[in-house]
Design a protein around this nucleic acid. Structure first.
Lengths: 95, 95
DNA sequence: ATAATTTTGTTTATTTTATAAACTACTTTA
DNA sequence: TAAAGTAGTTTATAAAATAAACAAAATTAT
């Protein structure tokens, strides 16, 4: 039973936390992600950019209460990738 | 809902394949791992060593048909770590 | 008014990790 | 006995994660 490779975009500690949060929350922002992950801004910035480049999440920059504000949400592609990842992972975990 | 960090020993593409295989097979060897993972000997050697150092797997070196032979199996600690990993991961995946 | 602090990030440098290439040692086969 | 195969290990390279340093605007304190 040859196990397939897991999607490397998703199989990362921090990116999985981010995506897991966005899947549950439907939509969120940079700060909320910072809170729920406990990661540094720098690390989040880098990982968000990777998720965006892969077109797994949508990044909308704007303003909120005079401060810059970055809204984050899953794309269709990201949602599907996550679901595929979950299905593949189940085989690893015997679920 | 703050997600806990996943066990970094297990949250690795190749090591997870190895452990997943050993969990299912009860016991195995270097070659079988090479076949089911499709990874290079070098990579497997390194990752097996990490799993051994963490005391997640038992590595028994001996001989079989005149050739050196490395038997691999889960330890109690490794089995528990895997089960904990699965439980934690379920929270990420909403399972 | 302006200096210090806070918010919300990005860029860059460092550390860690994964991977494969090169090597070792022994066995079998031609 | 030379070439090829088995079963790995060691080491060098490539990729990834992380944090430190930086930036730019907003707010608060003096």
């Amino acid at each position: 039973m040859q196990l397939k490779d897991l999607d490397p975009i998703l199989h990362s500690q921090l990116r999985l936390k981010i995506v897991s949060h966005l899947m549950a929350a439907e939509s969120s922002d940079f700060n909320e992600v910072k809170e729920v992950t406990g990661a540094s801004s720098g690390n989040i910035s880098v990982q968000v950019k990777k998720l965006q480049k892969a077109e797994y999440i949508k990044v909308e920059k704007g303003f909120k209460n005079n401060y810059q504000h970055t809204a984050l949400s899953m794309t269709e592609k990201g949602t599907k990738a996550f679901e595929t990842y979950v299905e593949e992972l189940k085989k690893y975990l015997n679920l």
